[in-house]
Simulated scan of single mutants.
Amino acid sequence: MLRMYGFDGGTPTHRAYRAITKAAPEILRTGGERLDLTALPRWTEYRAPRPARGDAWYDLLWTDPADREADEFDDGRGRTAELLRRRAVAPAGHLPMPPVIPVETRLAGATPVTLDGMSVGHVTLLGGPERALEVLRRRRRLAVKGDRSTDIYDWDAWGRNAVAVISGLTMPKEW
Rank of each mutant, 00 (worst) to 15 (best):
T105I: 14
E82S: 14
M97H: 14
K22M: 11
G10K: 00
M118L: 15
D64L: 03
D75E: 15
D151G: 13
R53A: 08
P65H: 12
L133I: 07
T114H: 09
R131I: 07
A48W: 04
T63G: 01
E82T: 14
D147K: 00
L84H: 00
G32A: 05
G32P: 04
L125T: 11
V144E: 01
G54L: 02
W155T: 09
P91Q: 08
L115K: 12
W155M: 01
A88T: 10
R50E: 01
T13A: 08
R85C: 03
E45I: 12
T114Q: 01
H14L: 04
L83Q: 00
T44I: 10
L28K: 08
R34Q: 10
A143C: 00
I20G: 03
I152C: 00
D154G: 07
T30S: 12
E69N: 10
D75Y: 15
G117Q: 09
P98K: 02
A24C: 10
G117R: 12
F73L: 15
T63N: 02
R53P: 01
P98H: 04
L35P: 03
Y46Q: 11
D55C: 07
T111F: 10
R68L: 05
E130T: 13
T150M: 01
A110S: 14
Y153A: 04
R148V: 01
D67S: 15
A81R: 15
R131D: 14
E130M: 06
M118E: 12
G121P: 00
R47M: 13
G32Q: 02
D74V: 15
L95V: 07
P65N: 14
V120A: 12
E104G: 05
R140T: 00
T38R: 12
G146A: 15
I27C: 02
Y46G: 02
I27D: 02
D116I: 05
P41A: 07
R47V: 05
T105H: 13
D74T: 15
L107Q: 11
T105A: 14
V123Y: 10
V135T: 05
E33S: 14
R140C: 00
W43H: 09
P91G: 13
V103M: 03
Y46N: 11
I20M: 05
D74K: 14
A48V: 04
T80N: 12
P102Q: 00
W62N: 09
R138L: 15
V135S: 10
P91K: 13
L107C: 11
E104N: 01
T63E: 05
T21N: 15
E72S: 08
A92W: 04
L136F: 11
G76L: 04
D59R: 02
R53V: 10
P112F: 05
P99V: 09
G146S: 13
K145P: 01
A110H: 11
W43D: 10
A132F: 09
G93S: 08
V89C: 10
K22G: 06
L95P: 01
R85I: 11
G127M: 09
R29F: 09
D154W: 04
R138S: 14
E45A: 10
P41M: 01
